[in-house]
Write a protein that binds this DNA or RNA. Structure first.
Lengths: 209, 209
DNA sequence: TTTTATGGTAGTCATATGACTACCATATCC
DNA sequence: GGATATGGTAGTCATATGACTACCATAAAA
C-alpha cells in the first residue's frame, strides 16, 4: 500500500536512469539536449559509444525518441510539460481598484491546466470571492476572452478597473456577483459605462503554510 | 498602465516572431531545437546568416538564450523551473477512507511552490475543508513531514486511513478539525490508535470552468 | 559452458553545423 | 543626405558531432 514511487523508472538500469536524468536536467537548464560526449563526460566515460547504447536502450523502452542529428534527443514523457506564465499584477476583488498592472513575475503551471497560449496569472486581493474558495493572495489563472457564461468566475473591466466576480447575464443587464454575502452585486446596464470581460478564471493556486 | 503583454511579443518584428514560433514548435514536436539551416528552410531563405541575426535579436530582447553549439537555442520562458510531481491518489476529506493509493498521474508546478523534492499531490474528495477554501476535486500539494504546527492543514493517517484536516495539538490530545461547521472534530488520545502525520498541505490547485 | 545484456576504451570518418566574410536592398530616423 | 536597423544571397572554413569498427570485462541467464 501507500508507497509513493516518484519517477523510479523500475525497468531502467541505474546507468540508464543516470543518463535519462542528465538529459532531463540538461533540457531544463540549457533548453536543449546534450551531445553524446557531454553525457559521456558527465558519466565519466571516455567515448560516445556507451552513451549511444544507453540512449538506444532508453528509446527501446520508450523514454526518449532519437534522431540521427546532433543533440537529437527528445523526451517522450510529456510528464514534465509546463508553461511559464506571467503574473500580471493585482486584482482587487473587494473594492474596485486600478486593477491590472505590469508583470510582477512568472509562475509555472502544468500545460494541461492551460488552454490556449495567452493565459496569465493575477494575484487576488480582497475577500469578495471567499465563497468560491478564492482567497486574498491566491493566484488566479486567467484565460483572456470577451464572452462569459453564467456562473463563470471572470475578470471584468468596469470603468477602467478590474474586478473578480461571478458573471451573470440577466435580461437587460449584467450582474457581477461577489461570492461573499457581506457584499452586494454590481449591476451594469448598457450605458452605465464601459464593461468588458478581460477573461475567465480557469484555475486558482494557493500557497499554504 | 494596464497593458497586459502576455506573450504578445510586441517588440518583435514579424520575422522574429516567425523564428521564435518555429523554434518553440520544433521543441514541442521534436524535443530539441532546430539548426540554423532548418530555421532557414522554414523561412524560405537560403543561408544561416539571416537566421543567426534573428536569433541574436531574440536573445538581445530576452526571449531566448544562445550557446555557440549545434542547436544551442534555449527558451528563456522555459527556464523558470517547474517540477513534475505525482498525483498520489485520493484523500477522502469528509469520511475516512482508504487514503493514498497508487499514482494517478503527474502534475507540474512551479519549483518555487515546492519545498524539498519529495512532495506530491493528492486529489481531495469531500467537503470537510470547505471553510479553508479546499474543495472536492482540488489538488492538494503535500510535503511529507512527521511534525505539524497548530492550524496547519495536514494529511494525517488515522487507523490506516488518510484525513485532510486542520491540526491542533492540545494538552493531552490531538484534535483534527474539519473546516466545516457541519462536521465535528476528531480527538485522538494516546492509545486511541495509530496516528501519524503524513504531511502538510503547502498548496492547493483548483481548476475552474 | 555458451550466450546474452550491460558497460566500457580507443580511435576513425563523413558531414552537419555555427561562424564568418563580402556584398546587396529596403526601409526608417535624424 | 547619411546613418542605422532589418532582411537577404553566396560561399568558405574549422570543428563538433553522430556513426562506426575493433576489442575488452563482468554478470546473469540458458
Amino acid at each position: 500500500m501507500t508507497t509513493i514511487k516518484v519517477g523510479l523508472q523500475h525497468d531502467l538500469t541505474p546507468r540508464q536512469q543516470q543518463v535519462l536524468q542528465f538529459v532531463t536536467s540538461h533540457l531544463d537548464n540549457q533548453g536543449y539536449p546534450p551531445t553524446l560526449r557531454e553525457i559521456a563526460a558527465h558519466l565519466g566515460v571516455s567515448g560516445p559509444l556507451p552513451v549511444s547504447k544507453h540512449l538506444d536502450a532508453l528509446e527501446k523502452k520508450g523514454y526518449i525518441k532519437r534522431d540521427k542529428v546532433s543533440r537529437g534527443i527528445g523526451l517522450t514523457t510529456s510528464l514534465s510539460r509546463s508553461v511559464s506564465l506571467p503574473i500580471a499584477g493585482t486584482v482587487r476583488a473587494g473594492h474596485l481598484s486600478p486593477a491590472i498592472e505590469d508583470i510582477q513575475g512568472y509562475f509555472s503551471v502544468d500545460h494541461l491546466a492551460v488552454k490556449g497560449n495567452d493565459c496569465f496569472f493575477l494575484r487576488v486581493s480582497g475577500d469578495s470571492m471567499i465563497g468560491a474558495g478564492i482567497f486574498d493572495g491566491d493566484l488566479a489563472l486567467v484565460r483572456p476572452q470577451q464572452t462569459a457564461d453564467n456562473k463563470d468566475t471572470v475578470v471584468a473591466m468596469v470603468e477602467g478597473e478590474a474586478t473578480l466576480k461571478w458573471f451573470y447575464h440577466e435580461q437587460d443587464h449584467i450582474r457581477l456577483q461577489p461570492a461573499n454575502p457581506n457584499m452586494s452585486a454590481i449591476i451594469i446596464r448598457p450605458g452605465d459605462g464601459e464593461v468588458s470581460i478581460v477573461g475567465k478564471v480557469i484555475g486558482v493556486y494557493r500557497r499554504l503554510g
